[in-house]
Simulated assay, not measured.
Amino acid sequence: MGNVVPIFRPEVVKEGVPPELQSALSQVIAEGRFIKGCEVAAFEKELCLELQTHSVVTTGNGTDALLACLMALDLREGDEVITPAYGYPAAVEMMCLLGLKPVLVDVNWQTFNIEVGLLKDAVTSKTKAILPIHLFGLPASMDDILHFAEQHGLPVIEDAAQCLGAEVEIEGTRRKAGTAGRLGCTSFFPTKNLGCWGDGGAVFVNSDDVQLTQKIRMILNHGQRDKYLHEILGLNSRLDTLQAVVLRHALKYLRDANEKRVEIAIRYQEELREISEIELPPFPHNPLNIPNVFTIKVKPQLRQQLKSFLWEKGISTQIYYPLAMHWQKAYQSRIRSGSSLTNAEKLTHCVLSLPLFPSMEKAEQDRVILALNEFFRNHE
């Protein structure tokens, strides 16, 4: 088949380990500071400055970050949390583990994000929080979500794992995605805008609530404030020092990497807009968006044919996500539908994500564009 255009390729695979990073990693290895090394605290401060928020607390992965946020709000068994019905179900999974009731609301067809107009019918006396997911690099409508949440006295937890570096407008002021709600969180999974070489995550505390920050740190450290004194229920979740070193390096180039993502998305838009059989995502119409993946919509009867055709041409694609959350066996008996879920259901049959990553070469994108045009010429 020759060289395959991957759906994602870490920069280090193409470029190797730069000397600056190699030196920093070697220093940690030489000193054996693999857990709670000073680089972890340094990364938290640097990311906090980049996001212009109050505090950042790192975690072992993005799912633990979601879990810590839910635990920190003292939600009780049976409490309801409103969240979108389409996306990766990590948040729903954590709600179920805590005995909470996920209330699923449909998403907007264009943006893939929670449909704000449906929130009012999803709220009950048991509703205790809203957890929007910023999907594919397209931030949810946080201004409207926060206005609704304030009217109902509900805290908002943002899942910003797929759009770090993107921005939202709140009453005319720009803020980084993930920093508008009471709490935000992200994953540093390698495919994310800011990714490491394994697992990692973080919680963002978006106010000067020192007690809340301290509580989250305790939750992530077995409920300890002081060693061997377990005051509350917690878990064990921390960012490895070596991953913190990798992330400190990546953070320096995050804006450049995100600019490259936007550049690739713009070219897809320009080169694919004449294909009437596909619907393109709303990039780059909003300058605040930072694409994480480039997800097109195609007729359900053509999707598998297109996916197979591209693979024969040496091009990887991915279906994010083949099942809406309410169709997942693990959650069916534990969730409540807060609206009809028509768009979430339709999207599972028509979405297809194309390769998009900062180290993508123009020749690789040429291959994707040429193959798509060839496929649809043959299906006119």
Rank of each mutant, 00 (worst) to 15 (best):
D209I: 12
L73E: 03
F136W: 07
E231P: 15
R273Y: 07
E39S: 06
W311R: 07
S337F: 01
E171Y: 10
V5W: 08
L233G: 13
V210M: 09
L323Q: 06
M95A: 05
G201K: 10
H326K: 14
W109N: 15
L354W: 08
R336M: 13
W197P: 12
L310A: 01
I296N: 07
E361V: 12
F8A: 04
N113V: 04
I315A: 00
R248Y: 08
M94F: 05
I216G: 06
T241A: 09
Y86S: 09
Q224S: 03
A202C: 01
A250Q: 03
P281D: 12
I290D: 08
F376E: 09
D106M: 01
L372W: 10
L73M: 03
N113A: 03
R336N: 13
L212T: 08
D208T: 00
E361R: 04
R175A: 02
R303I: 10
Q224T: 02
A30M: 07
Q162L: 00
M142C: 12
E39R: 07
N193D: 06
Y331A: 08
S55T: 01
N193C: 07
M94A: 02
G223R: 14
H222V: 11
L70D: 12
I232L: 10
N3H: 08
D64T: 11
R175F: 05
E279L: 07
L51M: 14
S308K: 06
G198H: 10
L51F: 15
E169F: 05
C38T: 07
A72E: 05
G338V: 00
L183P: 09
I296H: 01
V116E: 02
H230D: 11
N61V: 03
I133Q: 02
R182Y: 09
V4G: 00
Q365G: 00
V107P: 02
K45C: 15
V28M: 04
F283T: 11
N289L: 05
I278D: 11
E380A: 12
V293T: 07
H222Y: 10
L118T: 01
W197Q: 15
L49H: 12
R174M: 10
I130R: 03
L235P: 15
E270Q: 15
R9S: 00
N289C: 03
A363S: 05
A324D: 00
G234W: 03
L233I: 10
T63A: 08
T186F: 13
L183H: 04
A257T: 03
T213K: 02
A129E: 13
V262I: 14
T191Y: 08
L306T: 07
V107S: 06
E259S: 13
I264L: 02
F309G: 05
V205C: 02
Q318N: 06
D79F: 00
K307Y: 13
T317A: 04
K260Q: 12
L323V: 02
R225F: 05
P19Y: 11
H222C: 11
A161Y: 14
D64P: 09
L194Q: 09
